[in-house]
Amino acid sequence: MERIPILRMGKFLLITIQVDMHDTTALALQDDLMAKIARSGARGVLIDISALDVVDSYIGRMIADISMMSKLLHARTVLVGMRPAVAITLVELGLSLRGVKTALDVEKGMELLAAALEDGDAADQD
């Protein structure tokens, strides 16, 4: 079974989904990611789906789950690069992924994570 690579970039992890995923690939990604966050102490996760032309409720659920699970491990998740047609379809399907932070592209997602990290650290010191 193919696995989605998880790249480490400083305090953040980057996942670029480029293939039409099998359901089990998505499950494995979730396992791998949680293990990696715990091991590396990463504070943020970027999920880049700019290459995906379909996101159904299963993948939607995986993204929402990852976001909630990461939060428990003290890491924020930002979903980046969703295509217009995919966004329209997800909304029509009834999935607005309200708990998930989003950004236009990897760069803007990275800025969002960095800013959140600063705010968070400042709050921790209070």
């Binding site: 032309d53 379909v54 996101v55 159904d56 217009p84 047609a85 329209i88 379809t89 029509e92 399907l93």
Partner: peptide
């Protein structure tokens, strides 16, 4: 494209 995406989904 939007209709393709809806049908595929």
């Amino acid at each position: 494209l939007v209709d393709q995406t809806k049908l595929v989904t």
